[in-house]
Computed example of a mutant assay.
Amino acid sequence: MADVLILPGGRYGPELPLLHYAARAAEARGGVVESAHWERRTDLRSLPAEQRMDWIESQVRPHLQGIGLLVGKSLGTYGARLAAEHRLPAVWLTPILNNATIVAAMSAATAPMLLVGGTADPMWDGTVARKLGPHVLEVDGADHGMDVPGRLAASVEVLGRVATAVEDFLDEIGYAGPGSHQG
């Protein structure tokens, strides 16, 4: 049974690098990963934030049994209220911090969370991120995909920094999945 639930972005699936390496970090610590998949019934951008959150929660709630860690990218951060309600640690990759509904949900969290974003992402707010908790990776010049201008190697380096931040966060909070042989 899975203990890590991946919440993809609107156009960023679990097989893409940020979520893939976050999942690999959890798996390396004994985690069993499951990915949510959004069933599109409507254009979510047309819904008010509270309705978007309700819709995401309706998609996520059936997968929460046994989950001990949430990892979400962008649209997946609408799962923040569930993380707070269930006291789940979370890794939020490019969270939508210019949205009061998501920020309020994250503010209610008592479990640790890692926030990762870039200064060129209009949805990121580094000041808000640092107010939400001590675990923040902010990358100068990174956009919503955590890509930076210039040669591709620079964006690959950012991906490495994100993967290391996820590993460090999981180690710091003592995350050990069911296959970890710890206990």
Rank of each mutant, 00 (worst) to 15 (best):
M1N: 15
A2W: 10
A2C: 11
A2Y: 11
A2R: 10
V4I: 00
V4D: 01
L7P: 00
P8Y: 06
G9C: 05
G10Y: 13
G13Y: 08
P14W: 10
P17F: 07
L18K: 11
L18D: 09
L19P: 04
L19F: 05
R24V: 13
A26W: 01
A26P: 00
E27D: 10
S35T: 09
S35D: 07
A36V: 07
H37W: 14
E39M: 15
R41Y: 13
R41K: 14
D43K: 10
L44K: 02
L44A: 03
L44R: 04
L47P: 06
P48G: 01
A49F: 04
A49S: 07
E50M: 12
E50T: 13
R52E: 06
M53Y: 11
I56F: 07
I56D: 07
E57M: 06
S58P: 01
S58L: 02
Q59D: 11
R61Y: 11
H63E: 05
L64H: 01
G68E: 10
V71C: 04
V71T: 02
V71N: 04
S74K: 02
L75W: 06
G79M: 02
G79P: 01
A80S: 12
R81D: 01
E85L: 12
H86E: 14
P89M: 05
P89G: 03
A90Y: 09
A90G: 13
V91M: 01
V91Q: 01
L93V: 03
P95H: 02
I96E: 08
I96A: 10
L97Q: 04
N98Q: 08
N99W: 09
A100K: 10
A100N: 11
A100P: 14
A100M: 13
T101A: 12
T101G: 12
V103G: 02
A104C: 06
A108K: 07
A108Y: 05
A109S: 10
A111L: 07
M113E: 13
G118F: 09
G118H: 10
T119H: 00
D121V: 00
M123P: 12
W124E: 02
W124T: 04
V128Y: 03
V128L: 05
V128Q: 05
A129C: 06
K131P: 06
L132I: 05
P134M: 14
H135Y: 14
V136I: 00
V136H: 01
V136P: 03
V136M: 00
V139N: 06
D140C: 15
D140W: 14
A142C: 01
D143F: 02
H144P: 11
D147P: 12
P149H: 08
R151G: 14
R151F: 12
L152G: 15
A153G: 15
A153D: 15
V156C: 08
L159M: 08
G160S: 08
R161H: 08
R161D: 07
T164N: 14
V166N: 04
V166I: 04
D168Y: 13
D168M: 13
L170N: 07
G174K: 03
Y175I: 09
A176R: 12
P178C: 04
P178R: 08
G179H: 09
S180Y: 00
S180D: 00
G183W: 15
